[in-house]
């Protein structure tokens, strides 16, 4: 059980890390979303063994650790909000530029312009 979950966490981080290296903002948003899922799953795993829901009236010895669940819930809400914001930015970028490409660093572009292009040599 735990092994499967740990593998899932690793997979989510890996796929997410691959996706955020893309140029396209939508890919990056999806990648960040996957990493966020991985992180939340990790938080849940940090709570230790599974148990019954931590509600008032449940048997104290058998309930799962509620703290990581509360933390995961908070983290989900926060990442959800910021992802929505990023999507709104992608939309705005599409309105202004017609694309949602994330650009290079200003200085990278400056240096690239100064370097002789491959065609010249």
């Amino acid at each position: 059980m735990t092994f499967v979950l740990i593998t899932t966490v690793a997979l989510l981080y890996g796929v997410g890390a691959y996706l955020i290296m893309a140029r396209n903002l939508l890919h990056i948003v999806i990648g960040l979303g996957l990493i966020a899922h991985g992180a939340n799953l990790l938080l849940l795993l940090a709570g230790g063994a599974p148990g019954s829901p931590p509600l008032v009236g449940a048997e104290a010895a058998r309930i799962a650790d509620p703290l990581p669940q509360a933390m995961a819930l908070t983290a989900i809400v926060i990442t959800f909000g910021i992802t929505a914001f990023l999507l709104a930015m992608a939309y705005r970028s599409w309105i202004l530029h017609g694309d949602d490409v994330v650009e290079d660093d200003i200085d990278d572009r400056r240096i690239a312009r100064q370097a002789p292009s491959k065609d010249d040599s």
């Binding site: 955020i20 903002l25 990056i28 960040l32 990493i35 966020a36 991985g38 992180a39 939340n40 990790l42 938080l43 795993l45 940090a46 709570g47 230790g48 703290l67 990581p68 933390m71 983290a75 926060i78 990442t79 910021i82 992802t83 914001f85 990023l86 930015m89 992608a90 970028s93 994330v102 650009e103």
Partner: peptide, 23 residues
């Protein structure tokens, strides 16, 4: 966009660090 992406990524790492700390 760059600013938000970088900071969101850092936040994800922050959650990861917190998760490992708690574990």
């Amino acid at each position: 966009t760059t600013y938000v992406i970088i900071n969101l990524l850092a936040s994800m790492l922050f959650i990861t660090a917190i998760g490992i700390t708690y574990a």
